[in-house]
């Protein structure tokens, strides 16, 4: 049974007050993640928005052990933490959580991540996907959606984003999940399940970004949910090869009431001026993907 929001643990590991932008979705997700791991964890974090959220020396906003590392090295850092803790006889004391953004995961960090996945090293890798290099001022990443204007794609990115969860699935790791920070119970349940599994567990978490996407900070949750309703972001998990849609995405598959991508695109400054033809192309891409997810859900693999 999915956890209900009122049943989430009350102990907060993300302290009140941090340096993230107003309306940043990372904090919502991180609260659920740290609760799912009950604080029995060590995080490793590369240069990213999350570094900023974590605070500047000597003040920290997160009440769990946290090891900062260089940009390309997140997954290898987690491998080293896991190996070091095993060597020190402390592997049972904490779960190792690598947490990096979309650029840190799908671009500069993909080599180390692929290596760790092939070795099935024992940690959870969580990619928080705000769909561009937000910490450095909204440059396009390999996970930026088509049509989005960034500071390196001034007339809109031409390519669709790479599908990181599918790439991770292809490594044959025991657990892959896709979630959204605006559904904290979905995040919680997936990280809580991942905690009970050994080997490399990959969780991909969509995170709306007011400053990078161009929307009012009060709308973070609303827009995150619109992305799920449009089928752009899909909530699912693949456990030992068994695929299933979860939460809102499972409900949408039943009801068949996905909303048009155009409605979602109209809410954000980054898509302003996107030609109708391009919107149609994204809609067609989303439709085809969605059909695939529904087929997999029906087939269970």
């Amino acid at each position: 049974m999915p956890t209900k929001i009122l049943d989430l643990p009350v102990t907060e590991r993300v302290l009140s007050g941090n340096r993230a932008c107003a309306g940043c979705g990372i904090g919502i997700g991180l609260r659920a993640i740290t609760k799912a791991l009950d604080g029995r964890m060590v995080m490793t974090v590369p240069a990213s928005c999350l570094t900023v959220l974590g605070g500047m020396y000597p003040i920290s906003s997160v009440d769990v052990p946290w090891v900062n590392v260089a940009f390309p090295s997140t997954a290898a850092a987690a491998s080293g933490l896991a190996a070091g803790l095993r060597a020190m006889g402390k592997a049972d004391e904490m779960t190792v959580l690598a947490m990096a953004g979309d650029g840190g995961t799908g671009d500069i960090g993909i080599q180390a991540l692929s290596g760790a996945a092939e070795r099935n090293d024992d940690f959870i890798y969580l990619c928080y996907d705000n769909e561009a290099y937000m910490n450095t001022g909204t440059q396009r990443s390999g996970l930026t959606p088509a049509g989005a204007r960034t500071t390196t794609t001034w007339s809109g990115k031409r390519e669709n984003p790479k599908d990181m969860p599918r790439i991770m699935e292809a490594h044959g790791i025991p657990y892959v999940a896709s979630t959204s920070a605006v559904y904290p119970t979905d995040v919680y349940d997936k990280v809580a399940k991942a905690r009970t599994i050994h080997g490399l567990r990959y969780v991909h978490m969509n995170v709306p970004c007011p400053s990078g996407w161009g929307f009012d900070p009060k709308d973070t949750v609303r827009l995150g949910k619109m992305a799920v309703d449009a089928g752009l972001v899909v909530l699912y998990e693949v456990e030992d090869g068994v695929f299933r849609l979860t939460g809102r995405s499972a409900a949408l598959a039943k009801s068949g009431k996905r909303t048009p991508v155009a409605d979602y695109i109209a809410t954000q400054g980054r898509f302003r001026g996107m030609p109708d033809g391009s919107v149609d192309e994204v809609q067609a891409w989303v439709d085809a993907r969605w059909d695939g997810y529904v087929r997999r859900d029906t087939a269970g693999r």
Binding site: V42, A76, S79, A83, A112, E118
Partner: peptide, 21 residues
């Protein structure tokens, strides 16, 4: 740990050393 690059080799040493190994 049979890493996939030298960058990761030293990274593994860095974090394993951080936890005391």
């Amino acid at each position: 740990v049979t890493v996939e690059s030298e960058h990761s080799a030293l990274t593994v040493c860095i974090t394993a050393s951080t936890v005391g190994a």
